[in-house]
Design a protein around this nucleic acid. Structure first.
Lengths: 120, 120
DNA sequence: ACTAGCGCTACGTTTTCCGTAGCGCAACCC
DNA sequence: GGGTTGCGCTACGGAAAACGTAGCGCTAGT
């Protein structure tokens, strides 16, 4: 066998640092992998083909992108669509929309760090 | 010098895969590091001392926990409090509260994966 | 003095991520 | 046909991050 093919964290299965299989833990494990959040974020405005997505993420390695995409497809957050490339599923779009308030929070966070400026 | 001491991603600075310094990108970089989300999550119900936090996260390495905590302190999401240990700052608590809807979403996600069961 | 618990660092191993090269394929143009 | 272009994606070796274990320095209790 060529590909041991590791599977994505998903609810109902034990994940890194938790054996409960609670959904939020699977999500935390999934999103805690590098580039996962970024990929979802870059797809928020519509589908992108592989290389456009790679570009949007600042030129990450195609190997990592490929792996992240297969994980995200496995848990139905992303799907392939022809000929547009990769797109959020309805489920994935829901997740991203839940993340919008978080990005607004990030703006406040930024101001808080700037005003009570800690180290330059 | 013994410690090169790498700094946490923060708004206004270029981060991995993005040179814009936009706050949401800094946040994505920060949360995309392993255990960062989990640490914030485990602090949601109140302060924990170092080893309790380590335990809560399923026994992650103290070296990684230490590094994550210093990053989180640097960007004012976590603070040390005596004698309770580590706690969310008001800012950090805001972030976690923005994350609550996401954890509810994870429940729906879990059901969606279970019903239209993809591979067992 | 001795034990116990703490926060945390040191250090060698394993896992993950990265960067580059490039394959196989399809479409297009000459 | 022959050539070029662009695509999705994989291979592979090196770099960086995370891991596991041990244990230090400290404080408090007995």
């Amino acid at each position: 066998m060529k590909k041991p093919k590791k599977s994505a964290p998903r609810p109902g299965r034990p994940v890194r640092g938790s054996r409960t299989g609670r959904p939020v833990m699977a999500l935390i494990d999934l999103l805690g992998r590098r580039w996962t959040l970024r990929v979802l974020w870059e797809l928020r405005d519509g589908p992108l083909v592989f290389r456009a997505l790679q570009e949007a993420c600042g030129g990450l390695s195609p190997s990592v992108l490929s792996q992240r995409l297969s994980e995200l497809r496995e848990v139905r957050l992303v799907e392939t669509r022809d000929p547009e490339g990769y797109a959020l599923t309805p489920l994935g779009a829901e997740l991203v929309s839940e993340l919008l308030p978080v990005s607004r929070w990030a703006e406040r966070w930024s101001r808080a760090l700037a005003t009570r400026g800690n180290k330059p």
